[in-house]
Write a protein that binds this DNA or RNA. Structure first.
Length: 112
DNA sequence: GTGATGACGCAGT
DNA sequence: GACTGCGCCATCA
């Protein structure tokens, strides 16, 4: 039961590892956890609302840097608000300096 | 057990 | 650079 959904926790864990002012993509998480599909990451984050320590899912975007999951937040603008609050510039639901704020799991602070 | 859906990614156009 | 179609694996009806 819970063990089977352990991979969900893996996704939450990596998401919490994202430093402030940085973001990551479903693809990198999927590759890091070897889920095999980025869809599994999105599906896992869909259940993030059931977690106690509120996973910072607003720091997770798709490969294009789009705030694809904004509709899953309390308000469709909350995700952008949170990102801008961390110094991330968002325009038209997309991160402008995406590559500059992009953070990769395992690599952690490889550069700055 | 089968069919359809989904917070995505990649290749082709 | 943007859009479309297909594939990925897990969960729900």
């Amino acid at each position: 039961m819970s063990e089977k959904k352990n991979y969900y926790k893996q996704v939450y864990q990596v998401t919490r590892e994202i430093p402030r002012g940085r973001v990551t993509t479903y693809g990198f998480i999927a590759d890091y956890l070897a889920l095999g599909s980025a869809r599994m990451v999105g599906w896992a984050l869909n259940n993030c609302g059931t977690e106690s320590p509120a996973v910072p899912a607003h720091r997770v975007v798709n490969r294009k840097g789009e705030l694809s999951g904004r509709v899953f937040f309390a308000t469709p603008t909350l995700m952008q608000e949170l990102l801008e609050a961390e110094g991330i510039v968002v325009e038209n639901d997309r991160i402008l300096n995406f590559k500059e704020v992009l953070w990769k799991p395992a690599y952690e602070e490889e550069e700055d």
